[in-house]
């Protein structure tokens, strides 16, 4: 049962990583690409870590599982700060957000 849950979480995580990468490639400008990275990839990371933590709980114990889960808030904080830094810099350089109807 735990193995099934763990595998499902890993597959769902891979799906979100895939969608985030597709978004990164298809979205039209820097701002919209940040949406794909900041949201889809982080959710993918959360799912993958939850799946791995379930496996670690069985083989390596509680501390190892918690260590994996600890990665998520750290990566989230870094990702939020980096998205803001990139978006702010792009705006300061005068990069105009893509609008509907632009090429």
């Amino acid at each position: 049962m735990s193995e099934f849950t763990s595998n499902s979480l890993l597959v769902v995580g891979a799906f979100f990583y895939f969608a985030g990468t597709v978004g990164l490639l298809r979205f039209p400008d820097v701002y919209t690409r940040l949406h794909a990275l900041a949201k889809a990839d982080n959710l993918g990371l959360g799912c993958v870590l939850a799946g791995l933590a379930l496996q670690a709980l069985e083989t390596d114990g509680l501390a190892a599982a918690l260590k994996l889960l600890l990665i998520w808030p750290l990566a989230l904080a870094a990702s939020a700060a980096v998205s803001y830094a990139i978006a702010q810099r792009a705006a300061a350089l005068g990069v105009r957000p893509w609008q509907k109807g632009d090429e």
């Binding site: 969608a19 985030g20 979205f27 889809a40 959710l43």
Partner: peptide, 24 residues
């Protein structure tokens, strides 16, 4: 909300015809 946000952006990215209407 992070689950909702991830799902929403995944759906938008995987749609056959890209249909975005960004704004500030």
């Amino acid at each position: 909300n992070s689950v909702r946000g991830g799902w929403q952006v995944a759906r938008l990215a995987l749609r056959p015809r890209l249909d975005l209407a960004p704004t500030t």
